[in-house]
């Protein structure tokens, strides 16, 4: 199905795209059909700088299990940094 599920958050940081590094303004997260990955649905993350236009984007499409594994890695890394 087309889930249309879309979450969005302002973020502070940078990403590296085809034109090099750029500052990020937002992250868009959605579970829907991928553009490239050969799966029915993927967890898609767009890291963008909205002020620089649509090409200022770093995109990933992850299987739901991979997305959960990534969340666990992030949480673990953040927790260890706080120790």
């Amino acid at each position: 199905m087309c889930t249309y599920v879309t979450e969005r958050a302002p973020v502070t940081g940078s990403a590296k795209g085809p034109q090099g590094w750029f500052r990020l303004s937002h992250a868009t997260v959605y579970l829907d059909h991928p553009y490239f990955t050969a799966l029915d649905h993927t967890l898609n993350i767009d890291l963008v700088d909205e002020s620089a236009g649509p090409a200022a984007r770093v995109a990933v499409e992850l299987s739901p299990d991979s997305a959960r594994a990534l969340i666990a890695c992030i949480e673990t890394a953040l927790a260890r940094a706080e120790m």
Binding site: T6, T28, F36, V48, E50, G53, P54, A55, A59
Partner: peptide, 17 residues
């Protein structure tokens, strides 16, 4: 309109957002 200098996938992501 969203695809000036951007690929169709980037434009679709911008429109979706």
């Amino acid at each position: 309109r969203e695809a000036q200098g951007a690929g169709p996938d980037d434009a679709a992501a911008a429109v979706r957002a």
